[in-house]
Amino acid sequence: MILKRVFLNRLSGTWMLITLVIILSLPLVIGIALYLKASPIFESQSLYQLIVSTDWSPCNGNFGFWPFIFSSLYVTVLSFLFAAPICLFAAIYLTQFSSKRLIQLMHPVIDILAGIPSVIYGMWGIIIIVPFVSDVLAPLINIKSSGYSILAGGIVLAVMCIPYMLNMLIETFNTVPIGLKEASLSLGATSWESVKHVVIKKSYPGIISSFGLGIAKAFGETLAVMMVVGNMVQLSFNPFEAGYPLPALIANNYGEMLSIPMYDSALMFAAFILLVVVLVINLVFRYFIHKTQSQ
């Protein structure tokens, strides 16, 4: 009897370890697979050339990824700039100032927003955001724009990231002990001073982590952005002009243009860049979390 229990105990431990190893090795396996499939392209162009070149003419064998990387970063940064302050202030209000009833009401709303398929966000972007950019925002600064732009992509992406970021920030602020806020208030701080000097400070690692995950999600988002961003290979700082982020490049062309030599490898390389950038974003944010925690 006891032998059977010890055996089952060991077996269950082994199975759990195996599942853990599978999960841990997933990014590595994906990375290796993408790298191997992308490697033929390194025979024709160097890594440096692939990344910094702006010449995208696959028929001539030129695969410059910089316009795509630039578009991805630009859309992501814009979406972060739109979403981060909204989420931060909404989460602070919900956890520090509002009634418990409001936060109970907000949770299902956030869950619904998170559960909406990205194609619906894309459709909403085409119907509302693209005309808003072309008919309202662009004329405000005397610019002509079709509306299909980096800015539209940034706005749609921000809306998509809000539920994720907001949820994580709410969780973060909820972990701050009420005793800490009470301590600050009892020293004569106002509610806002307590939030600013104590709650936010105590939540730094969580805030950074929420932002990091939000950015990583934004960087890899494909469908909705692809529908509103214009998908034109160009390099422009003007947010009213079209862009072409990496995920859109892969989604638009995979399976379509594979007759062109090296195109398959080029798209695999695009996916590899995407993976590396998301990994780097995560590592950078992990570093900041570690730094703030050690401080």
Partner: peptide
């Protein structure tokens, strides 16, 4: 509140 210093059950040092 400044007229009353509070010492709670568990110490809550500020994160500074």
């Amino acid at each position: 509140r400044q007229k009353m210093g509070l010492l709670s059950q568990k110490p809550y040092p500020l994160p500074v």
